[in-house]
């Protein structure tokens, strides 16, 4: 009986998570277009529903009913595989991401995470790395020059941001003495990590922008110079997969920033429910992503590589060394 309840809970949590991740892109696209519109003194979508609220639904229906076209010269297997490769990892990653401690429903304690891995951070980085293959394969398989250029840029981009990103979180791990995201949040109960690790946060956030392939680092898409980059040749539901994947990663990076550097669900000053604190913080970072997108121009990919190798990498390494020295100095009596 115990086992059945536990299993049922896990299945329920996973289903709930998938539903949220699949549905959240709808309001996010609306928000993005609205914010874009108002920043450019337009109104954004206005026709479908109140202030265009139903526009994402209309877009979804359109994408679902459109012809699913595969170019004649494309590598059909890779072409079909790529959207799935892009979509699955962000979903898988959320298995390891906690959203809070626990809530009690009907006398049962329900933890707000699917699993508490002791190597959660490692798992997150390992799995999210796979997502890039979706982008690379998608561009390669389409057999179109714009798509190939998009995926070439992704390769160049990936090697320059993944390493600083990994290094940036080592300082956090040193502070929490654990790789479990739960323990990392618990260690920030008094002071958020961003106070101790401002450089780590900076490096992680910039690398996160590159990870999510958003302006100023959306080189793989670059609608100005590459059509739509790696998904130029995609249409219909496969294109929707890439879109959902993009928003899931934006969400993931925001969640990670909040968990690693902004105290997760630990509140400050105002006593709000922990989950609400968490949602508010994540919402702020998602907004920041959108805000960045409509403020900054795109970097060239040699510039991105220069930033990655010449600025972020030394910074994150210095961050590790200084954190280590300071921790040692504090620990030593």
């Amino acid at each position: 009986m115990e086992l059945v309840v536990a299993l049922g809970l896990i299945v329920f949590k996973v289903a709930f998570l998938i539903a949220i991740l699949l549905l959240l892109p709808l309001p996010l696209t609306w928000l993005e277009r609205k914010v874009a519109g108002h920043m450019q003194q337009r109104m954004g979508p206005m026709r479908v529903g109140w202030h265009g609220l139903l526009q994402p639904v209309a877009d979804g229906i359109k994408l679902l009913t459109k012809e699913d076209h595969i170019p004649a010269e494309a590598d059909r297997f890779l072409f079909k595989l790529a959207p799935i490769l892009a979509l699955a990892p962000p979903f898988v990653v959320f298995v390891a991401v906690p959203f809070g401690e626990s809530v009690s429903v009907l006398g049962t304690e329900i933890t707000l995470y699917v699993s508490n891995m002791n190597v959660a951070l490692l798992f997150v980085f390992a799995v999210i790395g796979i997502e890039v293959y979706g982008v690379i394969f998608g561009g390669w398989a389409a057999n179109s020059k714009y798509a190939v250029l998009g995926s070439l840029r992704t390769c160049a981009q990936m090697i320059s941001y993944e390493i600083p990103m990994g290094f940036a979180v080592i300082g956090v791990v040193m502070l929490a003495q654990s790789m479990s995201l739960l323990d990392i949040v618990r260690a920030q109960a008094d002071v958020w990590n961003v106070v101790y690790q401002p450089v780590g946060f900076f490096v992680f956030f910039v690398a996160g922008l590159a990870e999510a392939q958003r302006i100023p680092f959306d080189l793989a898409e670059a609608e100005g110079d590459l059509g739509a980059g790696f998904h130029t040749e995609y249409s219909g539901i496969r294109f929707a997969f890439f879109m959902v994947s993009e928003y899931a990663i934006v969400l993931l990076v925001s969640v990670l920033v909040v968990i690693l550097f902004f105290g997760g669900w630990n509140g400050v000053l105002v006593p709000l429910p922990p989950l609400l604190w968490f949602v508010l913080k994540v919402a702020f970072f998602v907004y920041l992503f959108i805000w960045f997108r409509f403020t900054f121009p795109r970097y060239r990919y040699d510039q991105l590589m220069a930033i990655g190798w010449k600025v972020l990498l030394p910074l994150s390494m210095a961050n590790i060394i200084i954190t280590g020295v300071l921790l040692g100095a504090v620990a030593a009596p």
Binding site: V35, G37, H38, M39, Q40, Q41, R42, M43, W291, F292, F294, T295, F296
Partner: peptide, 18 residues
């Protein structure tokens, strides 16, 4: 960069010309 962000944020609360 902060200047740019402040500018776009200001525009976000301006009236649309649409």
């Amino acid at each position: 960069l902060a200047n740019g962000l402040a500018l776009t944020f200001g525009y976000m609360f301006s009236r649309p010309v649409t």
